[in-house]
Structures are given as structure tokens and as C-alpha cells.
């Protein structure tokens, strides 16, 4: 029994080591730097809560949090769209295997390729506006106008990511017993009743899992697309916290301030994650 425990610890050790070196230590170090004015060159000076005070009044940081809030509000689309598409594929719409492959395709493209592709399509003289002109509509500055830039980037991000969620939902759907769906149909349930009264309630744990994962993804993994498509602009229209952190630690050499932002972002994502996981746990219990 004791040997088994030792072996178990040995199996865990590599992962634990990696976690400590690459996750835990940077987190602790970052937490300390957040209270300093370290610029990466000179010695760090302890400045207490000054970085956090500055954050409260920093209009750019405020804008990044506003953008983050907007993106989180789009979560129902990130989760709902792939859920519906997965259900349709599961119910056997014509060409289902093709759609499954087609939806998954963007996942294998890097965000740099996707960003470059859509930059060309969505720039002011790009093909999307050419289509608008053909249809007699006014062209729109999708990436250069602050009213549209965030919506444009988020739309592309949804397109890039939704294939993975479709796959997760499909795997969840495979666990839904077909007899229940057949029985509902025999009882006269229409398509929407089958979807909303039977399939989605049975998929609830999967939906919540996808919601947590997607929320973390949208808050922390939009960097590539933003970098390529808009560079954060126009103004601060597409700034997200991770983008600002990157600028602050590199271009501005303000590592202490960037660390303070990272701590706030970590706490923010952590809080939402905890709330979501509690909700899930309550459901399971």
C-alpha cells in the first residue's frame, strides 16, 4: 500500500515540478513585482500599493476592462451557436459529416493566419466592403472605426474557436440516449421541443464546462487576433488586459505595473471561474 502511494507520487512529480516552476513560482514572483516599480533594468523599488492605485485611475486599463465585459457578454453566442450546430449535426442534418469537418477546420489554423486573412477581407478596401458596394451599401471601416472594431475581432474569434466547442458538444451528445429522443417524437414533440426540452437540459454539465473554458479563453487568448487585426486600436477599442500587459512589460518597460495588472486579471478570471464551478457543482449535487 505504501509502495503504491510512493509510485503515485512519482507519477505526479513531473507535473507538480512543471506546475511549481512555470506556474506557481511566476505567480508568486509576479505578485511581489506588483508592489515594486521594477523596469527590468534598474533594481526594483518597493512602492506598496502605488501600482494598484494607478490602475484604478488609468483610463486605458479601464477601457480594457470595459472591452472585457463586452466580450464576456457575448458568451451566449460563443456557447449557444456551437451548441445548436452540434445538435443539428447530431440529429442528422443532410451533409452532417461535411459540416463537422468544416466547422473544425479553423481550429487547425493559427490565430496569425486567421488574423491576416480577415485583415485583408475586412480592411476598408477589402472584399467584404467590395461586396457591400456591389449591394449598393455604404462601406464600413470594420477594423478602423471604434464602433465596429471589437465586434469584428470578436466575430472572427468566434469563427476561429467555435469548432472546438462543436466537437465537445458532439461528444456530450453521444451520451444522450437516442431512445429518449425517439420517445419524445413518438409523443408528438417537435424539433424545437426536442432540442430545448430534452437535449439541452441533458447537456447542462457540458454546457457549463464549455462556458467556463470559453470564458477563460476569451479573456486570456484573444492576443493573436488583436495583435494582427487591429493592434489594439482604433484608440483602445480592441485593447484587452493581456494586450495592455504585454505593452506595459515590453514597450514601456514597466514590469511592476504590468505585474499589478496581471494580478488583477488573475483575480478577475479566478473569481468568475470559482462562481461558475460552484454553479456547476450545485447542479451535479
Amino acid at each position: 500500500m505504501r509502495n503504491e502511494r510512493v509510485v503515485a507520487y512519482l507519477f505526479v512529480l513531473p507535473a507538480l515540478g512543471l506546475f511549481l516552476v512555470f506556474r506557481f513560482f511566476p505567480l508568486v514572483a509576479g505578485s511581489v513585482y506588483a508592489f515594486t516599480d521594477w523596469n527590468g533594468i534598474a533594481d526594483a523599488r518597493w512602492i506598496g500599493l502605488a501600482n494598484f492605485r494607478e490602475l484604478i485611475f488609468d483610463p486605458v486599463f479601464r477601457d480594457t476592462m470595459r472591452n472585457t465585459a463586452w466580450v464576456i457578454l457575448s458568451l451566449p453566442i460563443w456557447v449557444g451557436l456551437p451548441l445548436l450546430l452540434a445538435v443539428f449535426i447530431h440529429l442528422g442534418v443532410p451533409g452532417a459529416p461535411f459540416f463537422r469537418a468544416a466547422y473544425f477546420f479553423p481550429i487547425v489554423l493559427s490565430s496569425i493566419i486567421i488574423g491576416t486573412m480577415f485583415s485583408i477581407i475586412m480592411r476598408f478596401d477589402g472584399s467584404l466592403n467590395q461586396l457591400f458596394i456591389l449591394l449598393g451599401l455604404e462601406p464600413v471601416d470594420w477594423l478602423g472605426d471604434q464602433r465596429f472594431a471589437l465586434i469584428s475581432v470578436v466575430s472572427v474569434a468566434i469563427w476561429a474557436h467555435f469548432g472546438m466547442n462543436v466537437l465537445i458538444f458532439l461528444s456530450g451528445l453521444s451520451a444522450v440516449p437516442p431512445e429518449i429522443i425517439d420517445a419524445a417524437r413518438v409523443d408528438g414533440a417537435n424539433l424545437w421541443q426536442v432540442i430545448f426540452r430534452i437535449i439541452i437540459p441533458m447537456l447542462r454539465p457540458i454546457v457549463e464546462f464549455v462556458a467556463v473554458i470559453t470564458m477563460i479563453t476569451v479573456v486570456t487568448s484573444m492576443f493573436g487576433l488583436i495583435y494582427i487585426m487591429t493592434g489594439g486600436g482604433p484608440g483602445t477599442a480592441t485593447y484587452m488586459p493581456e494586450f495592455l500587459i504585454w505593452l506595459m512589460q515590453g514597450e514601456s518597460n514597466r514590469l511592476g505595473y504590468a505585474a499589478a495588472m496581471s494580478i488583477v486579471l488573475f483575480a478577475f478570471v479566478g473569481c468568475i471561474g470559482v462562481v461558475q464551478i460552484r454553479m456547476m457543482r450545485r447542479e451535479w449535487e
Binding site: 527590468g40 533594468i41 495583435y227 512589460q249 515590453g250 514597450e251 518597460n253 514590469l255
Partner: peptide, 30 residues
């Protein structure tokens, strides 16, 4: 994003032996 990446290298004191720089504040600030 050159100066952001270079800034990261400066922070870590790792990376290039020689770096290409623009004149003016891009060089003088560093």
C-alpha cells in the same frame, strides 16, 4: 512589436548580443 519583444529580452537580460535600434528615444530610452 520590436520594442515590446526587445523590452522582454532586456527585462530577462537574455537574448541578443547585438540589437538593431531606431535612432532617437527608441534607443536613448533604453
Amino acid at each position: 512589436s520590436y520594442y515590446t519583444v526587445l523590452g522582454t529580452a532586456i527585462n530577462a537580460k537574455q537574448g541578443p548580443d547585438v540589437a538593431l535600434l531606431h535612432g532617437g528615444n527608441q534607443a536613448l530610452d533604453r
